[in-house]
Amino acid sequence: MNAAVLAFFASCIVVFFGFVGATEWLIRDQVLPQDTLGAHSRLLNTSQVSDAAFGDSHAARGFNASDGFINLAYPSENIHDMAVKAMSYFSDHAPGRIILQADPHLFAPYRVNSRHKIDNDVPNLHIRSVRHRSRAFAYWETFLRNGGHLESKVTVTDFGSLLSSGDLSAVPPRKRLLDAQIRRTWHTIRETEHVETARREYAALIDWLVEKGARLCLVSYPVSEDYAAAMASATSSAGHEEEIAFFKNQAARVGAHYWDARAAVRNRGFFRDVDHLNSEGATRFSPDLLKACFGD
């Protein structure tokens, strides 16, 4: 092997390790201080609060928990994840007031076929984490485009809520329509064995919570008029009314309260996109949620 080839390989090695080192610095300096998953995991592992909310991004962004309540919802979680998390969290103390998300899209194919996991095994080098490694180039792209800094658009509150900016009213009508139709496609329910399994897991979860003494409230979170219109134009199998009936029946079966809040917010300025509240929307909606569920 001649000197030129050796020099080339040596240069490649230097560049590789230089990129790894620089990316580790970027993750530690820019990403971790505002990492929602890290903050969520720490809260989940250290909190002993009895009043809690569980769900996916609709609950994480839509319920602004305040003193006395903790929001343990996290984006992309499905019913299986909610059950595992709730049972683990309340393994050593009793539940109090519990808000459990009851949105039909929890039975959508992309949700029932997935398994989301909170990973508490933090490697010595964060670049070794699958989550950060897969996003390394995106981190650098955003870092450079923003002039040498990363800034999250999500605020993690002291009580676990993941509040977001955004204003659906500023989005052109044509784009709102397109986004709502895309969501409708994602959220179309197909009767499968996975859906039946998810229904059984949901029923088992509420049984477990009630047996542990929880004051349970099932909530279908607000969606925009654009989303509601898209779902209303869908076929009966995609329109979500069967799933709403399921949640109502489950609540009635165990004596829990169910609140269908899908139409509770109609101001587009309170949404970040067609089916998630923004920070102001969540702040305004949350007192109504507590009052509807628990009379607070």
Rank of each mutant, 00 (worst) to 15 (best):
G68R: 00
G166E: 10
H40P: 02
A238I: 05
V112F: 12
A282F: 07
G239S: 14
S286A: 11
A234V: 00
P123I: 00
I189W: 03
R128L: 15
A263Q: 12
S134V: 11
D67M: 00
S165V: 12
S50E: 08
E191H: 08
R272H: 09
P287F: 08
R200E: 09
N71A: 09
P123F: 04
G148K: 04
W208K: 02
E243T: 11
E242T: 10
Q34M: 07
E243Q: 14
F271I: 06
M1W: 10
D288S: 14
L177Y: 09
G18L: 03
A203T: 10
T36R: 12
F107P: 06
V122Y: 06
A256G: 03
L72C: 05
R176M: 09
F8L: 14
G148F: 04
F271Y: 15
F90V: 09
C12E: 05
A203I: 07
N78A: 12
D67Q: 08
A292K: 12
V223W: 02
A59V: 08
A203R: 14
R174E: 14
A251L: 09
A256F: 04
G160P: 07
L106F: 10
P95C: 02
L163V: 01
E196N: 13
L144E: 07
R183M: 08
A170W: 03
N124A: 13
I27N: 05
D81K: 08
A251D: 03
F294I: 11
